[in-house]
Design a protein around this nucleic acid. Sequence first.
DNA 1: ACTAGCCCCTGTCCGC
DNA 2: TGCGGACAGGGGCTAG
Length: 297
Amino acid sequence: MPELPEVETVRRGLQPYLEGAVIERVEQRRPDLRFPFPDRFAERLESRRVTAVGRRAKYLTIHLDDGAVVISHLGMSGSWRIEMSGEAVIPGEFHYERSKAAAHDHVVFHLLTASGEHGRVVFNDPRRFGFMLLAEERLLDEHPSLSGLGVEPTGNSLDGELLSSLLRDKRAPLKAALLDQRLIAGLGNIYVCEALWRAGLSPLRSAGTIAGPPDKPDVRAEELATAIREVIFDAIAAGGSSLRDYVHADGSLGYFQHSFSVYDREGEPCLRAGCGGTVERIVQSGRSTFFCAACQR
DNA sequence: ACTAGCCCCTGTCCGC
DNA sequence: TGCGGACAGGGGCTAG
């Protein structure tokens, strides 16, 4: 479920429970997900207090009081689930109902939260494309998973000038360039399709063709930068998109899927006023692209 | 240095 | 009802 808006939604859901909580125990239920877990992963987390829950692109970062950081990626099907005991802790006792693990529950963090409740946060991932790694906080930006990432679309720096410079001389299709995490970090298949529709740009055109000369960025780069930022902010405000899986850590759904203009709308009418076109589905580098050939040029 | 293609894995849906 | 194939929000690796 994971593009930037979904990961940000998960981060916001986990934050109230994780920040300030002590990780009393970690159940690591298999040796690997996409990658092997780090050596002694569970032991290295136990008795640590969580100081912050962050996000970089589509990665969650769980910061611990000893300077370690858990880097977690949700892959295609990863999700987190919060299970609280609902009871205040009685000192010296450890009790909450132990429910049976669900299928594909791979990691369970047993917590004592800052507000004094026992509970768990559970990582579930049927396809196991997700992963968890460990880094040192002071070296976080240099970690191999994060060091090559491009600009955050939620920051202030993504404007027409920067986007022009990122796309200039790129001959790859515009859609492929926007999916390249080294340029802009956090966009995925849904929001690239949606941003291109909002900007009225074809996913097929060569990326460099909207850059313009270095001294005068093309207005189309400006419009695309705006479209990217707006669609990401709109999606975050909607709690992300829930397609096949729940997004939120509390089990509730995002609702941005109701605002899709093109994604998953093959054969349906283009929603742009006066367009009259039909949304098409094509395949680019193995993934579906949804767009309107009539108004996206 | 680029790009396309394949792969990892499970679940679901659709057509026969 | 069963079975095979296509497809799914990602990204790392390889071969051109």
